[in-house]
Computed example of a mutant assay.
Amino acid sequence: MRIAIVTDAWHPQRNGVVRVLDTLAATLGGMGHQVAVFEPGQFRVMPCPSYPEIPLALFPGRRLATMIEDFAPDAVHVATEGPLGWAARGWCLKNGHPFTTAYHTKFPHYVRARTGVPLAWPYALIRRFHAPSSAVMCPSPSVFEELGQWGFANAVEWSHGVDIRTFRPQPKDFLNVPRPLFLYVGRVAVEKNLPAFLALDLPGTKMVVGDGPARAALMKRYPDVDWRIANGDAELSRYFAAADCFVFPSLTDTFGLVMLEALASGVPVAAFAVPGPLDVVGDAPVGVLGPDLKAAALAALDVDPDACRDYAAGFSWERVAGQFLSLLRPLAGERRRCA
């Protein structure tokens, strides 16, 4: 099958959406499918307001249409709600082609966190974006339920996976820091609720590996925290494996792939009992969830690392890719302009 994936999030961005789509495309390719990713690097771009690390394609409609038609896909998947996503949606609707979408990011919650607007406003826009989709793929049961509550009639469940070859137990002496090591990996942005972790009075070392628009301000505010940047997945995997506990303070993630990467590395998770952690960890004996993040982090130190690794091994990317394929809606041959 020839599959077109249109996304506003792609390399060199470092976030869970990019990792999911990149791994998905590679897995599908390994299964014999031809995948074309249409992303901002192929267009003129401008920095995203309030988040300059994210480039947004400028007026991509005509060029994107030509590129998709030249590729002649059997199915189109629109992964994000940015300029490329809207352009791909418009092309599909104009030509009567079915398409699928995904809800990777709680965009309405991020808009409210940055602007203070009522949550219903951005949800109305996002609901309009996804309404013509054959299926809105949700990364977790919690997101599926949430979208249903907001009036999304076409939501379907679609889980994520983890690369257990890259993320695996490794020697902890990669980092020579006071123990125990409490680690966060991910974007450093307001929606990640990082102060809930950074302000904790914990023994040993608190470490953040990642970049983002809030990093400079938080580094000044929390000088006792060890701030790092990982260069590539090989180095990133060593940071994960070196930790004693992975702390995930976010209250708004749709899934939280980094938690699976920590578990695959043999590192237990401490988090709030909210969607994301409840979907990844739940009541499995691989982490501690609760209202007191400090208590959860300290209790997680007693979790069996082998149990974490075994649990993560159940999240196969082959299974995720197979489910993705089953949800696609092929373009009817007689209706394809690009055939």
Rank of each mutant, 00 (worst) to 15 (best):
R112K: 14
F59S: 13
I54F: 07
Q149S: 13
Q42Y: 02
G29P: 08
D74F: 10
R19P: 00
S133L: 04
V17K: 06
L28M: 07
G32T: 07
H109V: 07
W150E: 11
V18I: 08
P132E: 05
Q42W: 03
L119A: 03
P55E: 08
M67F: 05
P55G: 12
G41T: 12
V78L: 15
F107R: 00
P118L: 01
P40R: 09
G116S: 05
H97L: 14
L24N: 01
Q34I: 10
A72Y: 05
V78S: 09
R112H: 07
R128W: 13
P73D: 10
F107Y: 14
I126H: 03
R14E: 11
A153H: 15
H130Y: 04
G85D: 11
P118A: 02
P83V: 05
R63M: 11
P132R: 06
W121E: 04
A36W: 01
Q34P: 02
S134D: 10
L93T: 06
S133W: 02
A65V: 09
V45S: 11
P98W: 09
A36C: 08
V111T: 11
R14K: 14
D74N: 14
Y51R: 15
S142Q: 06
T27F: 01
A88Q: 10
P132K: 09
T66A: 15
L56P: 05
H104A: 14
G29F: 10
E53Y: 01
G16I: 04
A26W: 00
S50N: 11
R14S: 12
V45G: 00
I68C: 07
K94A: 15
E146D: 14
W91T: 13
M67D: 14
P122T: 00
W121S: 04
V18F: 08
H33L: 05
G32Y: 04
K94V: 03
R127G: 12
T115S: 15
Q149L: 10
P40G: 04
Q149F: 01
F43M: 02
F71L: 06
G82T: 11
P141G: 09
W150N: 09
L21T: 10
G148W: 07
V76W: 06
P47M: 04
F144I: 00
I54Q: 06
H77C: 08
M46Q: 12
L84M: 12
T27E: 13
P141C: 09
L93N: 01
V117E: 03
N15R: 01
P40E: 04
A124F: 04
I126D: 04
M137D: 01
T100N: 06
K94G: 13
W121N: 00
E39Y: 07
A36T: 07
N15T: 04
P108R: 02
L21S: 03
H130T: 05
A88I: 11
R44Q: 13
E146P: 02
G32F: 06
T23P: 00
K106Q: 14
D70Q: 15
Q42V: 02
V76G: 11
L56N: 05
V18T: 12
M31D: 05
